[in-house]
Design a protein around this nucleic acid. Structure first.
Lengths: 246, 246
DNA sequence: CTTTTCCAAGTTGTATGATGACCTTAACTG
DNA sequence: CAGTTAAGGTCATCATACAACTTGGAAAAG
């Protein structure tokens, strides 16, 4: 079921991880100018008091995230995050940010169809489950509690209502990575969701719910498409905002 | 000078990058069981013909992406979501008809959206690639040769035209085993495909192609949905056929 | 025979040093 | 001044060694 090391609070004291986190924080704090060159590996090694091996591993991780780009003979450079987030042009360098948006996009197709199938096939109990998840969301929202889980539960209930277990499987495997609603950004987990933001989600969910309940597959698809499109926009906007403000 | 280095995508062929890509593909292809332990760093180093440093860097990148989790003294383990995402779907479990059909259904959602996005975003060369695949299909059909590969190429070209590399990845990992159209039916050759059958596919493809070329996203979605629905029916029929004889 | 303890092999994490490939800059040449 | 060359800086890779940790089984205790 869940990951063996649920939570990962374990004593993973890898030096590289600490370096990664520190560098990430420094980058998001704007310590280095946009597109600037980071200190050399040797300098960082001295600065962190670790070997160059550790620095290299950290930089490899950051490069995999698409935050930096090392260039042989020149140095390690910061990438313009806004640009990389929006340029879906060439599949050239698949950084994590664009990957997240891309995965989201694929998710859209899956969920849209999922909503349509759910509208056509759902049983009474499955509809009740969707409604319950929606109500949960509303209750948590009123209480000021985090709504992320009930949000995901809502989508999951719809997937379940397709009577195609594979939808749930796919959603679970994708969902933990890129949930459009409360995405954990690479630079911080402090997803600040305003009340209005979540209320908007709730309203969009209501429309999906209504379409499914009335077994209107096309309306359900449309509502889901609208919902996910907006989520995508919100996600994009938050990325841009983050990359500019800091 | 300019801070943006995006102009030159860099022909950089880092060994580590190649290892990363190979490992990622292997993982995606399900070469290692879910949650399994990868070969040791030394083994991988020998296998790839590189030093352990390179392997370590690749693993660090994969770990940053959340695909694997190295544990000191134990080994490097796959995280389950990496294995369950799209990997195993075409594997052993797809022998069961219901599962295969379920996977197919999910595929529909993906491809429908893929067609819509392709209509909106495709470049001239990407459209040409789709057209070429379509022409290939027609030529092979006239010659009486197997059309499976060009069929898949057609769908793949559409996925490429979304400019979302993840679509291609998903399509590839879902693999040729569960192509709704016809491509490799798991049980037999393409001898079961009549000329009329393939001609029908070709015609359906033409409609998709036309919609994409005219940048009509909705029409592209509709054409793809129609195509895949028909394919699903055909597939279902053939499965029923086969399941009786077996 | 069962249980516990403990060790030794195996694996990842880190350090160190060296070499090659590549980039940048500045001095040099015409 | 333009073009070329040389030198140093920087990343990429390799090789080796040791430390930290896990694991499985041997050895000891009951």
């Amino acid at each position: 079921m869940s990951l063996d090391t649920a939570g990962v609070p374990a004593r993973r004291l890898k030096l590289a991880d600490m370096v990664i986190e520190t560098l990430r924080k420094g980058i998001s704090a704007g310590e280095f100018g946009a597109g600037a060159k980071l200190p050399t590996e040797n300098q960082l090694a001295v600065q962190f008091g670790v070997s160059r091996t550790v620095i290299r591993e950290a930089i490899a991780a950051l490069a995999a995230d698409g935050l930096v780009q090392p260039r042989q003979g020149a140095g390690v450079f910061l990438l313009d995050r806004a640009a990389t987030a929006f340029t879906r042009l060439g599949g050239e360098s698949s950084n994590k940010i664009s990957v997240a948006l891309n995965v989201l996009e694929v998710r859209m197709g899956i969920e849209i169809e999922s909503a349509g199938l759910a509208a056509e096939r759902h049983s009474a109990s499955q509809e009740a489950a969707i409604l319950e998840a929606w109500n949960d969301f509303g209750r948590l929202l009123k209480q000021g509690n985090p709504t992320g889980k009930s949000d995901f539960a809502f989508h999951r209930a719809i997937a379940a209502a397709t009577n195609n277990p594979f939808y749930i499987e796919v959603l679970d495997s994708l969902g933990s990575r890129t949930i459009p609603c409360d995405v954990a950004s690479p630079w911080g987990t402090e997803s600040v969701l305003t009340f209005e933001y979540q209320a908007g989600l709730h309203e969009e969910h209501r429309r999906i719910l209504g379409a499914i309940a009335s077994r209107d597959a096309e309306a359900a698809r449309e509502a889901m498409r609208d919902h996910l499109s907006r989520s995508q926009e919100r996600y994009r906007a938050r990325l841009a905002e983050r990359s500019q403000s800091q």
